[in-house]
Design a protein around this nucleic acid. Sequence first.
DNA 1: AAAATATATTAAAACGTTTCGATAAAACAA
DNA 2: TTGTTTTATCGAAACGTTTTAATATATTTT
Lengths: 337, 337
Amino acid sequence: MSTIKDVAKKAGVSISTVSLVINGKGYVAPETREKIMSTIQELNYKPLHSARKLATKMTGNIGYIVWDVHFSEVEIFYSQIFLGMEYAARDSEHYILLTTVKEDFNPKTDLPRFLKYRDVDGVVLAGRVPHNLIKYLEDQNMPFVIVDYGIPGKVYNSIVIDNFNGAFQAIDQLIKSGKKKIGFVGGSFYHPSIKERYRGYKEALEAHGIGNIEYFNNYSFIKEEETSPEIGQNGINQLLKNNENLDAVFCCNDTTAIGVMNELKAQNKSIPKDIAVVGFDDITSSSFCSPALSTVRVPKLDIGKQAYKLITEIIYHPKETPQTRTISVEYIKRKSS
Amino acid sequence: MSTIKDVAKKAGVSISTVSLVINGKGYVAPETREKIMSTIQELNYKPLHSARKLATKMTGNIGYIVWDVHFSEVEIFYSQIFLGMEYAARDSEHYILLTTVKEDFNPKTDLPRFLKYRDVDGVVLAGRVPHNLIKYLEDQNMPFVIVDYGIPGKVYNSIVIDNFNGAFQAIDQLIKSGKKKIGFVGGSFYHPSIKERYRGYKEALEAHGIGNIEYFNNYSFIKEEETSPEIGQNGINQLLKNNENLDAVFCCNDTTAIGVMNELKAQNKSIPKDIAVVGFDDITSSSFCSPALSTVRVPKLDIGKQAYKLITEIIYHPKETPQTRTISVEYIKRKSS
DNA sequence: AAAATATATTAAAACGTTTCGATAAAACAA
DNA sequence: TTGTTTTATCGAAACGTTTTAATATATTTT
């Protein structure tokens, strides 16, 4: 492996000048620059990151933290966001270090190694994440961005999904296709996204003069736990028991919707003729299940890209006030509605 | 942030001695060691990785490469293996850098950045991966381990799944439960795992005196492409057309099995009464679908752990001859069989 | 008692960069 | 002309470790 020294010697200049060229800083005569560039090519020289990092006191790493349950079980949603970040970081100077944390995270004992050793320049937190972790990052003055989550009353640098409008659109479409008795099946409101989706559901119904307090009472099933197909299964049973005329269900996400569809199929209801089903997220399996699930597409790769962009902006140009960037979503009509 | 210098000064010893204590090398008097340890605690000193790496010429990183299609679309299989590695690496000295490559990978243009800059001490390749990438690693003398893949006629350091026995067991169970006409639905034999699963299927049938050439001809559907639910759908239709007496299907993996089940349900066949279905892998959705899918559980986290163990062994103690370590699997009976 | 070996500590070199400050030539302004 | 600013280059210090080789003392062997 050749070093900057080799390049300098071969090009007949000093180490400093080579460094200036590599980093595009200071004044370097055009011919000198050319000469150095071609020497770099010739020797196939690549700066050694550890040396560079030592000198600059940057780590060149960005941490990506996701709750372990979200990473392992709730499908591939947060992995796709990670991948979007990775794509964005590929041609730049960062590596993304992925790790998971437990729900009962304890900063004293469970700190990800890259935080303990300050081996990252910044951190992206994806989805519901322990609040004491956020606090830790604040205390440590570690730059961070929150993706698809938020804490009521607090404002952080974050990337959020336009959950309200996504839900609103979906319900609007259902109503326009003739559905009138539209149920909601959802999970944990700890997650503000789900709360927002419910708000979109309600306001769309109200906008069409359909929803009112009684309606929402009868047609909503909300269970305060992590979403899963089981919640969908229980939810649809509950709704059917209380409302014989139910003709559509809007689910807080695709995972739940799949549970709903399985249960409906088990009961020999026809989807969407008897009951239409709509999800949210557009996870991989939603287009595979049968009938293919109508849903609201969340552009996961793009979210990752935006998260990367924001965290790097913050690292290099600390913002005075926190930024919130909203990612818009799109209703995807498939066979289930 | 305190440095080794601060520790040395406060403990009243030289930098070298502190370094020896940190790395557990050389001779250090017990009292001195104690003193230094407590000083480290007091100052909350953490060695700076970039400095350490510069001195040792190690990067402290391990690359994890997976074909992009496998990462994004074929469920969470390879993400779980990654997570297993991450768990194993947590308390040690490595970070795992995850990246994906395209199928038509070109070493000249598509090289992952961590390879281009030699920012990893070793690499783990998961699943089907471009052969020219493997060649590149060999040429570069970069230590690597292949997980769940292999190239006929070549032997590499690798972690493989006991596909043969898994399939054998599954078929054995099906036969013992009274099934006689067992079909096989599978995808790309480019992937040796699938080939092995097919071999397990055949030999189990032969062992029971059931299978013969004609039988296998009639009851096998093999499509040379990436596995997907569609293959399952097409496969089961084909098998049903040619064999009215079909009473079970063994699928090369769960993704395919889900396609088979969906199609059977659409045709109002009862699972498992009319036709039993068995998959392979035990991906998350296999326990969620209805009826819950019987399958062969592949311990993904454990595979990741073993991969980490092997690559670190190779990095620190290069092996003369390549190691192949086999991970055993377990048949999981659920409702679909 | 002398020689050899094991234990303990350290100064200094090395790892490969970036960056600060110095120096000097070239361009411009008065 | 002289003085100032801009352009160009470089030597040397700094970043925080590990490691080598030197030195010194304590212990064991002969």
